[in-house]
């Protein structure tokens, strides 16, 4: 598991108040929304804001494939890596 993936899990837990969840409790391939972790659309907005603040990476709902980017921690890490390079 990459450091970025771990960092993202920590960011998800902190920014979305998931006190009962641990980094180890989130599978990098697991779905973040609806099924899996069970997050909702407000969480998506909150997470987008947290990612913009921490990585200076902006997810553009008009241009980017938001569903794909937010599919899992692994997908999110891949997108942030590609945007930073």
């Amino acid at each position: 598991m990459s450091d970025l993936e771990n960092e993202l899990k920590q960011l998800i837990i902190e920014s979305l108040d998931l006190e009962d969840t641990s980094v180890d409790g989130i599978d990098s391939q697991e779905a973040l929304f609806n099924e899996g972790l069970g997050l909702d659309s407000i969480d998506a907005l909150e997470l987008g804001l947290a990612i913009r603040k921490k990585y200076n990476v902006r997810i553009d709902a008009e241009k980017d494939d938001v569903v794909k980017i937010f599919a899992s921690v692994a997908a999110l890490a891949e997108f942030i890596e590609s945007e930073r390079n």
């Binding site: 979305l16 407000i42 907005l45 909150e46 804001l49 603040k53």
Partner: peptide
């Protein structure tokens, strides 16, 4: 600062 979407909702 930017405001939290959760806080707004």
């Amino acid at each position: 600062e930017e405001i939290s979407p959760t806080a707004f909702s």
